[in-house]
């Protein structure tokens, strides 16, 4: 789905969203009582220091407002911008700051909902979609840690071999279903139904602590993570 169609389906009562430099900003009306703040990264934009700081600034301003308006983060990005300047300026600090801003908004009572409708990868994925309190996706979304050709260079295996392995072991392969199985994505929404209903249903469920490891175990995509984390936590607490 394109952003315009997504916004129409999410906010039949109206929305005002502007786009500048690959970033989205605005508000939508879910129902007469509920206004939703909207931010986004669109058009496969690769966020660098400038984009990350602009997004974080807007999100922190929302976090400071006393109302409980939910925050929707639309994501169709590349990976982080790979450049000498971005690293010179401290991209790691800036992307971490963006993740902190989302965490702060959630903590301050604004539900943060990531909606992955296109691509996202690597550090950009961690600092945007994965840093939201809840992450949902639309069919056709394409999250990846690294594309298979780049992965082939690093692992020194051919793309053919990697493609074959991806069929049996989804834990390393790009794509929505593979990420879903790990527990990274709470729900895949149905584009044939009004997205507004699906957002309302999500907002009606209470915000919870990070349950992604349990979800990964239930779905069979990440069988060890929850057990290992719980065991280390238990041993550390017992040690005191």
């Amino acid at each position: 789905m394109r952003p315009a169609d997504i916004l129409s389906s999410l906010f039949p009562a109206g929305h005002q969203v502007g786009e500048a430099g690959g970033l989205l900003s605005g508000t939508g009306r879910l129902d007469p009582q509920t206004v939703v703040d909207i931010v986004g990264i669109t058009g496969k934009t690769y966020p660098g220091v400038d984009e990350a700081l602009a997004l974080a600034g807007r999100i922190l301003a929302i976090a400071e407002r006393p109302d409980p308006a939910p925050l929707l983060f639309l994501v169709d990005s590349g990976s982080q911008r790979m450049s000498r300047r971005d690293e010179l300026m401290g991209l790691s600090e800036t992307l971490a700051h963006l993740a902190k801003a989302l965490w702060q908004a959630e903590r301050a009572g604004h539900r943060t909902i990531g909606l992955l409708y296109g691509g996202s990868a690597a550090g950009a994925f961690i600092a945007t979609a994965l840093a939201c309190g809840s992450l949902v996706a639309l069919p056709g979304a394409w999250p990846e840690v690294m594309d298979l050709p780049s992965m082939a260079r690093v692992t020194k295996l051919s793309v053919e071999v990697l493609t074959e392995k991806a069929g049996t072991t989804p834990v390393f392969a790009p794509g929505l279903d593979n990420l879903f199985a790990t527990g990274a994505i709470a729900e895949i929404w149905d584009p044939a139904r009004p997205l507004s209903d699906q957002l309302k249903a999500l907002l009606a469920t209470p915000a919870t602590a990070d349950g992604r490891a349990e979800l990964g175990r239930e779905r069979g995509g990440r069988l060890k993570a929850a057990t290992i984390a719980q065991e280390v936590e238990r041993l550390a607490l017992a040690h005191g």
């Binding site: 994965l130 840690v145 527990g183 990274a184 992604r212 995509g221 990440r222």
Partner: peptide, 10 residues
Amino acid sequence: ANAGELAISE
């Protein structure tokens, strides 16, 4: 990769 990426987010 997918398990590692999500682990970093956690």
